[in-house]
Write a protein that binds this DNA or RNA. Sequence first.
RNA 1: GGCCCCAUCGUCUAGUGGCCCAGGACACGGCCCUCUCAAGGCUGAAACAGGGGUUCAAAUCCCCUUGGGGCUACCA
Length: 497
Amino acid sequence: MTSPIPPVRVRYAPSPTGIPHIGNIRTALFDWILARQTGGQFIVRIEDTDRSRYDAAAEKAIFESLKWLGLDWDEGPDKGGPHAPYIQSERKQMYIDAAERLVESGHAYYDDTTPEELHALRERQRAAGQPPRYDGRGRHRSPEAIEESRQNGLPITIRLKVPDHGTVSFEDSVRGKVSFELKEIDDFVILKSDQMPTYHLAHIVDDHAMGITHVIRGDEWISSTPRHLMIHKALGIEPPEYVHVPLILGKDRSKLSKRHGATSALEYRDQGYLADAIFNFLALLGWSPGDDTEVMSRDEIVRRFSIDRINDSPAIFDSEKLEWMNGVYIRNMDADQLMDQILPFMERPESEGGLPDTVARPIDRVYLKRLIPLVHERLKKLTEATETLDFFFADNVSPEASDLPGKKMDAEMTERALTAALELCKTAAPFEPEHLEAEYRALAEKLNMKPGQLFSPIRVAITGKSFAPPLFDTMSAVGQKRCIERISNAIGILRAG
RNA sequence: GGCCCCAUCGUCUAGUGGCCCAGGACACGGCCCUCUCAAGGCUGAAACAGGGGUUCAAAUCCCCUUGGGGCUACCA
């Protein structure tokens, strides 16, 4: 069903100005999938041409996100490659050369308009009810005038000459044909006064030099694509295939932002989501295989992915569905894998969601391994392990008196249940789940209670919670000694309450 | 404001003119299973934004309206 296409060269080109959010990472995901599917290359390039917004922590987070999701790259800043360097600030001269070449060929010109003049121009246009647009005044500046401004230390930029009439159009892989009127586009800056290129120039020079075949990027770039086409034309080079993918929106339909809670891949990692689940979920946000399959391995996604099945419309990030899918992935793991994943979360400090600090680290792996089957299918997120398992590790628990009675039970009946449960607990042997269950069921009958009525107070007494893993597995794992202590403690709480 | 993009259940989506009084999944309700909570099974409610065309036939094609989003920087 997927039309086989020749090997692609695709790149993820984030700017290190902030932690990449999930929508941004999804384009990297699509890049990676396509590269792996076609046997092509996935390239990472850092677009740090805005020196004022550079953030080293953001750059670190970019690579950490990719690594966590398993999106390995073939060429990049750390790995090098045939087109190194892969950091734009280190490629500065290439852009300067390209811009100057465009000036020489008459496609671009030096402009000495100051920011203040530009601002004033826009204000005037706005006041007159006109769209703010650069008026092309620099086109008429003589070389001498530019040189004089340069001598005087005025900022000089290079702008592309955009024809004032005509149409540009291109065939987008997901949108189809998109057209723009050139009269809507002004002469835009390609080389800033600090000699750094703008995004427009830089990415085109690089994509061409690096042999990029498909530019996969967010929808927000679609309106600047005509500018990119004009640069290609001026440079005399062929544009790549454009793949504009729909944006990912938050619950309120606005662009995903901090207000919507977690937005970066790393935050999801820290909240106990699995990389495979995020991978699967993200792939399905804006793409679908065409049938009802939802849970798919990486291999299956790589095999079935195709650009023409990418959706046109923006998607809202549904965290509830993500949580469900994460649960599916947890259930599909084997016990050892799950234990490895859970351990670091449980060993975090108590203040960060780990077990109480009174529980010794490292956690007893042998004991934990025994507990995994009891909670395996109950977990949706790795972070939940702490709260579902804490009572196994604690010395004691403190249930509320009001939580102890089961359905249709008063305090007297609850006390009777616990007292009898305590006696049986002292004598029960072996302290194994099946045996315990048989004994306690018999006890319920003897007490003329429903099994659930007897079990309920015991559960709360032993776990401190009204819901927990199956009672007799739990009791067996907690151990006879602690069970006796906890039940008698609960009786005390009940009497006091 | 101008330009561009988008529009199927609350959400993610299937649907590329007849197979659709629209299928799946999450979430939600009911039932079953059951010692609680899960998991699992069955089941229910829930959508083609509106209006015009084109056609024997439209969720699917065209136009308009409405709504949402993006861009409009010497940011990416």
